[in-house]
Computed example of a mutant assay.
Amino acid sequence: MWYYFTKVLVSAFMIVAISEVAKRSSLIGAILASVPMISLIAIIWLYHETGDTAKISVLASNIFWLVIPSLALFLTLPVLLKSGLGFYWSLSISICVTIICYFAMLASLRFMGINI
């Protein structure tokens, strides 16, 4: 039980720390947020729990392929915000675009014979 509490606490701390840093410096906040910390934390937790490097390898490869469509959020959100659309509408539309990009990426990978 303590292990899961520690996982939640460490993960939550990272997110809060990045948002607090971003209040003071958007550049440093962006640098910290762009580092794949959540992925690294997940990889560390998975290794700690299983010790299975094959699972780590598969997870890292899958993360690679799915980072590409996730970039759609960071392209559409600023465009929509700059166009004057409200924050929550912009965020909602950006999330929808990102979901569509995920499905397109998964279909493309399947078409190319890459199984994730």
Results as ranks from 00 to 15, higher is better:
residue 1 M to E: 14
residue 1 M to H: 15
residue 2 W to M: 14
residue 3 Y to S: 15
residue 3 Y to M: 15
residue 4 Y to H: 13
residue 4 Y to R: 11
residue 6 T to Q: 12
residue 6 T to D: 15
residue 7 K to A: 06
residue 8 V to P: 10
residue 10 V to Y: 09
residue 10 V to L: 11
residue 11 S to L: 11
residue 11 S to H: 08
residue 11 S to C: 13
residue 12 A to Y: 11
residue 12 A to W: 09
residue 12 A to C: 13
residue 13 F to I: 08
residue 15 I to R: 05
residue 16 V to T: 09
residue 16 V to R: 03
residue 16 V to F: 09
residue 17 A to W: 09
residue 17 A to E: 12
residue 18 I to P: 00
residue 18 I to L: 00
residue 19 S to M: 13
residue 20 E to H: 12
residue 20 E to I: 12
residue 21 V to D: 01
residue 22 A to Q: 07
residue 22 A to V: 07
residue 23 K to V: 10
residue 24 R to P: 05
residue 24 R to F: 09
residue 24 R to L: 08
residue 26 S to L: 04
residue 28 I to P: 09
residue 28 I to E: 09
residue 29 G to Q: 08
residue 31 I to R: 02
residue 31 I to V: 03
residue 33 A to E: 11
residue 33 A to T: 10
residue 34 S to D: 14
residue 36 P to K: 02
residue 38 I to V: 14
residue 40 L to E: 07
residue 40 L to W: 13
residue 41 I to C: 07
residue 41 I to D: 04
residue 45 W to S: 03
residue 46 L to D: 02
residue 47 Y to P: 04
residue 49 E to G: 02
residue 50 T to G: 02
residue 51 G to Y: 02
residue 51 G to F: 03
residue 51 G to M: 01
residue 52 D to C: 03
residue 52 D to M: 01
residue 53 T to G: 09
residue 56 I to M: 07
residue 57 S to T: 10
residue 57 S to D: 11
residue 58 V to N: 13
residue 59 L to D: 00
residue 60 A to M: 03
residue 60 A to F: 06
residue 60 A to Q: 04
residue 62 N to D: 13
residue 62 N to K: 02
residue 62 N to S: 07
residue 62 N to E: 12
residue 64 F to Q: 07
residue 64 F to I: 09
residue 65 W to H: 02
residue 66 L to A: 12
residue 68 I to T: 07
residue 68 I to H: 08
residue 69 P to N: 01
residue 69 P to H: 02
residue 70 S to G: 14
residue 70 S to H: 10
residue 71 L to R: 00
residue 74 F to H: 06
residue 75 L to Y: 05
residue 76 T to E: 06
residue 76 T to P: 05
residue 76 T to Q: 06
residue 77 L to W: 02
residue 77 L to N: 01
residue 77 L to M: 04
residue 78 P to C: 08
residue 78 P to R: 02
residue 79 V to S: 04
residue 79 V to Y: 01
residue 79 V to M: 07
residue 81 L to I: 04
residue 81 L to N: 02
residue 81 L to M: 09
residue 82 K to V: 00
residue 83 S to D: 06
residue 84 G to T: 07
residue 85 L to W: 14
residue 86 G to V: 11
residue 86 G to R: 13
residue 86 G to W: 12
residue 87 F to L: 08
residue 88 Y to K: 03
residue 88 Y to N: 06
residue 89 W to A: 12
residue 89 W to F: 14
residue 91 L to M: 14
residue 91 L to I: 11
residue 91 L to A: 11
residue 95 I to P: 04
residue 95 I to C: 09
residue 97 V to F: 02
residue 97 V to A: 03
residue 98 T to E: 06
residue 98 T to H: 05
residue 98 T to A: 04
residue 101 C to R: 01
residue 101 C to Y: 03
residue 102 Y to G: 06
residue 102 Y to W: 11
residue 103 F to H: 11
residue 103 F to G: 05
residue 104 A to M: 07
residue 105 M to K: 00
residue 106 L to S: 05
residue 106 L to Q: 05
residue 108 S to G: 15
residue 110 R to D: 14
residue 110 R to Q: 14
residue 110 R to P: 13
residue 111 F to W: 15
residue 111 F to T: 15
residue 112 M to R: 14
residue 112 M to E: 15
residue 113 G to D: 08
residue 113 G to A: 06
residue 113 G to C: 02
residue 115 N to S: 15
residue 115 N to H: 15
residue 115 N to K: 15
residue 115 N to C: 15
residue 115 N to M: 15
residue 116 I to W: 06
